[in-house]
Write a protein that binds this DNA or RNA. Sequence first.
DNA 1: TACCAGTGATGCCCAGGGAGTATCAATATC
DNA 2: GATATTGATACTCCCTGGGCATCACTGGTA
Lengths: 303, 303
Amino acid sequence: MPREYQYPFELRHLVYFREVARRLHFRKAAEALAIAQPALSRQIAQLEAALGARLLNRSSRRVELTPAGAALVERIEPMLSALMRVPADVRAVAEGRVGRLRVAFTGLAMATVLPDILRGFHRGFPGIRLELNESPTTQQLAALHAGEIDCGFFHPDAPSPGIDTTLLLRERNGVLLPADHPLRSRDSLRLRDLAATPFVLFPRTHNPGFYDRILGAFAAAGVAPQIAEEVWPRSNGVGLVRAGIGATFACPSEARHLPEKVVFRRLAGPAPESRLVVGWRSAQPVPPALAALLEAAAAHAAP
Amino acid sequence: MPREYQYPFELRHLVYFREVARRLHFRKAAEALAIAQPALSRQIAQLEAALGARLLNRSSRRVELTPAGAALVERIEPMLSALMRVPADVRAVAEGRVGRLRVAFTGLAMATVLPDILRGFHRGFPGIRLELNESPTTQQLAALHAGEIDCGFFHPDAPSPGIDTTLLLRERNGVLLPADHPLRSRDSLRLRDLAATPFVLFPRTHNPGFYDRILGAFAAAGVAPQIAEEVWPRSNGVGLVRAGIGATFACPSEARHLPEKVVFRRLAGPAPESRLVVGWRSAQPVPPALAALLEAAAAHAAP
DNA sequence: TACCAGTGATGCCCAGGGAGTATCAATATC
DNA sequence: GATATTGATACTCCCTGGGCATCACTGGTA
């Protein structure tokens, strides 16, 4: 059975025709195309038949474009020159020299290891455009599965099937307090010392596992947690602490760059633990640009 | 000898790949393309080899685009949809339904038959864009030979090889005088009556033959011509007459739409004769849009 | 656990058609 | 009018796209 899906023409016809239209001379065009003149004549005739229009007026001494031929040249010229660049472009993407990476992250990632990772990555892959979006752990996992992002920096609760991860940070939390908090002078606190202090947390839906482990830490300390606000993104939570609304949990690593009027204090006794990983869809092979970013991240991996 | 000029791929590869990329399923894509699945697999493999990049990750249960494949889809999608429209567009141009006509004309043409011709033509061929430029006879002939215009309305001196013409107007000239000219009250003049009146002519280079026939008319009348100005385009010449600078020659047909303060008078005795033709490159066949314009012009042909 | 359904890839063959060579008809040029 | 050069045509060869049959692999299921 012959094929049903017929193309009116092939790229070959267009390239051949362009050459004839440029030179207005079959023999010279054929030479430039490194084919014999009769083959060229036939291909042009085919193209004319396919389009149902005469493209060239040829007397045996002169070849000239018809209006239809001129219209065709005008339309295909930009396409052909664009198509010439396609193979190189595609290969560049395949080799990771250019492209884009869609990266999601949490506030903690940006406050700790992410800037260094991105700096190192961008030095090695200047052609890769990074699309960075802060988003909660649960959304990152959904986006990874849906193929909407290439990797995410988030706080895992349980292993996710189909997602590979590398652990970057694992730290016992301390707390951030307003600088005028009554307990600001104490170097180390216990959770039960903060029984009367309202806490600013993230919405539970953003990471139910971690949220519940925080509540577990309160329970272990024998304290009923006072949740003042559930706020997102993270920077707003720190802003509320700064405004004196309450306290929040934070990693020691995060404490290096705190705004004014916010202080970090270690927690003795029960405390939640933060884990930061970079995660990506399990795939063989990992695209080169992503592989490079993951490698840069692995250089900051937790011991 | 095998061909030297190798295309990295053909349109077929791109259309096939687009279908697979849309459906992410070889069998369904093959069905949509009305080919068998193995043929499709091979064409995709060829495309990947040609580009030197893997475009699809296929496990035996799932097909997904690699970044390179996504980049390729992005680039070819607009081209393919544009290419789909090309055959219809080219055919429309070939049939004269759309396109453009580059038309040159002289002031006399625009002052007489051209507006009617264009009006009639545009009614029949609304898709044709007319590019109209006033230009002198000699320039029109050069532009016709160079293929820079499709037809011209001009004043021929001798037949031009390679240019076909249709005579549209053939009239003995009269003169345009300023309304305050001493001879304004005479209904009919002779050239020798105007021996003292300066004349406004066009530059000789714009039509040497006609220019010399004008001088011949002066000679036949036994008058030495007073050339006040050589000016172009024609409308400026009429403007100078209106300003009282001098007189100029004009056709009776032209006299129907004169500005204020300019009057037309017939000439008895020796007088130049104006011939207006429409001319186009001899070609078989004449493009349909041009043919339609020529037909509209022929309807106004001189008897 | 073994089977089954369904995936894309591979092997093999046929034929359509693209390209080659030889040649023709037509037309400028001398 | 002889000659050279143009694009078109006739004929042949063989490359390659497409067909069918089948394989290897995977995931769900009885």
